[in-house]
Design a protein around this nucleic acid. Structure first.
Lengths: 213, 213
DNA sequence: TTTTTTTTGACATATATTTAACAAAGGGAT
DNA sequence: ATCCCTTTGTTAAATATATGTCAAAAAAAA
């Protein structure tokens, strides 16, 4: 079905489609046209049709798209029809926030292990999951078939830990540390650089104020 | 100096430039050419020159760019030469994580107030800042000249709270709730949709595995 | 000094992304 | 059944973004 390379621009929009389709589904809406969805989501109908068409004909002329079917298919494309096992490295506030965020579990992202360097934290429990010392990282990943490593540690430790994760054969790293990781091809990295995001906000505040003057 | 509209694509790259320039500055590097920076940052030299040039000639032919000057100027463009006062609405794990993240303070983002609905949390302190009840939101913003509201509450409450923030004349909202906010023109919104980010990661894992086969 | 080398800024080209337009498919009404 | 209306999938055009090239400016070397 899907053959040609899909641009990251399109992929980046899929989760938002999924969210709106999920809401429509919950409201009991059976079908929707690109035009109506475009009105709800504030994007062009043309873009919606083009995006959906990358993955094969989900729609039907004169009818529109079946909400449930479309929801399922986009979920499959995003790979959330399968479960992903993850560990969180760095059980500070952010690590704990993520460990406690149940919505990930609903999407099939299962928190299987927590790791921290600090001996005062190791041994404690977070949402029923014990915090393990860093020494156990390699053995735990090997024994528990972990796909994703979540890095919520300060930037200083991020690169060495990412190397350890890569050496264990981890498939992906969700990186909250404020550095760029270097990983071999085939290991996926998704960065969440919160301060970058905040600076963009700051830029837009300043820009708007300048425009006013 | 800066007149024409700068694309968000360029703006999105500025924080990363700032990060690398800051590191170079700390290492005592005085000047750098687009070519060398391109090697370090893994982008084309052409893009770097084009980006920097949007904001006026920072560089000098035959010499390159002065690291310190460039760092300062990009900081100014991003508006981090000024301080921003912010409040965090929703003192769950994520709200606390952000409240405790000192690096924002170093960039001039000052956490001035914390708010929560839950009476068990209000009255407690987080990093020396008292958690206030939601009823005090309007008066606090008015009296403390708050620029940015950080929304770290579940999606259900996000839209009504965003309306209250907008009515108080807030300039910007940093939105961690998993909904799209509707705000009037002139109020800046920056979304951090963590589950979207995780789904992109999931897509790339799946895509790579399909490619291998 | 003069020459050579480096390196920017600008422009031209290539690529990517978004939007517009429309024929053809199919639903729904008569 | 037939016609009309809706709506897709697709192709074309427009826009945006990224890359390549090079003259000219300035530094460094001779």
């Amino acid at each position: 079905m899907e053959e040609k390379e899909i641009s990251q621009a399109v992929i980046g929009r899929l989760p938002r489609y999924l969210r709106y389709l999920g809401e429509l589904k919950d409201e009991g809406v059976e079908r929707i046209s690109s035009q109506e969805l475009s009105r709800i989501m504030n994007v062009t109908a043309s873009q919606i049709r083009q995006d959906f068409n990358h993955f094969g004909g989900f729609g039907q002329q004169g009818y529109g798209y079946n909400v449930e079917y479309l929801y399922t298919e986009i979920g499959k494309i995003l790979g959330i029809d399968q479960t992903h096992k993850l560990i969180i490295v760095g059980v500070g506030h952010l690590g704990q926030a993520l460990a406690n965020y149940m919505n990930f579990e609903r999407r099939g992202f299962l928190v299987r292990g927590l790791f921290d360097q600090n001996p005062e934290i190791t041994g404690t429990m977070v949402r029923g999951i014990p915090v393990r010392p860093m020494e156990e990282l390699e053995s735990f990943i090997g024994e528990n078939d972990i796909d994703i490593g979540v890095l919520t540690i300060p930037k200083e430790g991020a690169i060495p830990v990412s190397k350890r994760l890569v050496d264990c054969g981890i498939k992906a790293i969700w990186n909250f540390a404020h550095v760029d990781l270097e990983v071999p091809d085939g290991v996926q990295v998704e960065n969440v650089h919160l301060s970058d995001s905040l600076m963009k906000l700051s830029y837009n505040i300043t820009r708007f104020e300048k425009e006013q003057r």
